[in-house]
């Protein structure tokens, strides 16, 4: 397995001087491609801050971020266009599906690859394969409003996979689902991590989903405690 994402001494401080609040204090962790990692922490501990930094949305105060072999942050962004990094290397899944309501399933999945100027036929073929893989082969032309919450979340997963990213950041993807569907999505994410060889970091509050993960990243006073999930516990 190769490295999906590696974080070295990542820091984030909001404000300056006496008003400075240090939220992340030298976080270090690594998630391999093919691994599903759970990111857990109490509310206000800095989950969203960490997710935004590794998603290249929020600039850290210091440290290093590696996506695969590419160093994207070394005390400053190594590229001017963070959006291109997001588009090419990172997939996002959110609490709600946040699909574009006026595009059908196939268009939602095809939109992002189209901006990478890939051939239209190739994009369509890959999007169709992905949707088929996620059990939505019959719903290519359905609108998001015509699908169930679980189906929409699977479309959102397909969208996140459409550009073949190195890492997927899933921000509480099961929060809006009932426990049965939550287990189903967690299982699917694990399957995707293994089969698509992508590193997935899933923010969750639900400890019942931890057995699906290979690794648990716990934010503890601004640092990351990493623990492996015992193989006999993995579902």
């Amino acid at each position: 397995m190769s490295t999906g994402i590696r974080i070295e001494n990542l820091q984030k401080t909001y404000g300056q001087g006496d008003n400075a609040v240090e939220v992340i204090k030298g976080a270090c962790f690594e998630v391999q491609r093919g691994e599903l990692a759970a990111l857990i922490a109490p509310s206000g501990a800095g989950k969203s801050t960490l997710l935004m930094m590794i998603g290249c949305v929020l600039e850290p105060s210091g440290g290093e971020i590696w996506l695969g072999d590419t160093q994207v942050y070394a005390d400053r962004w190594t590229t001017k266009d963070a959006r291109t990094i997001r588009r090419e290397k990172i997939g996002f899944i959110f609490q709600a599906h946040y699909l574009i309501p006026f595009l059908n399933v196939l268009e939602n999945v095809s939109l992002l690859p189209q901006t990478n100027k890939e051939p239209e036929a190739l994009i369509r073929k890959r999007a169709t394969q992905l949707l088929d893989y996620l059990g939505l082969g019959e719903k290519l032309y359905a609108m998001p409003s015509d699908l169930s919450g679980g189906q929409n979340q699977r479309v959102a997963i397909a969208r996140a996979l459409a550009t073949e990213p190195q890492i997927i950041l899933a921000d509480e993807p099961t929060a809006a689902l009932d426990i049965e569907r939550a287990h189903s999505v967690a299982k699917l994410l694990r399957q995707i991590a293994k089969e698509q060889q992508v590193a997935i970091i899933m923010v969750t509050h639900d400890e019942r989903l931890l057995p699906y993960c290979d690794k648990i990243l716990k934010i503890n006073e601004g640092k990351i405690d990493t623990s492996q999930v015992e193989s006999d516990q993995v579902i």
Partner: peptide, 13 residues
């Protein structure tokens, strides 16, 4: 605006 924020986040120019 929510969809626009999502589009910008996932990398749509």
């Amino acid at each position: 605006i929510k969809e626009i924020s999502i589009m910008k986040l996932i990398g749509i120019p």
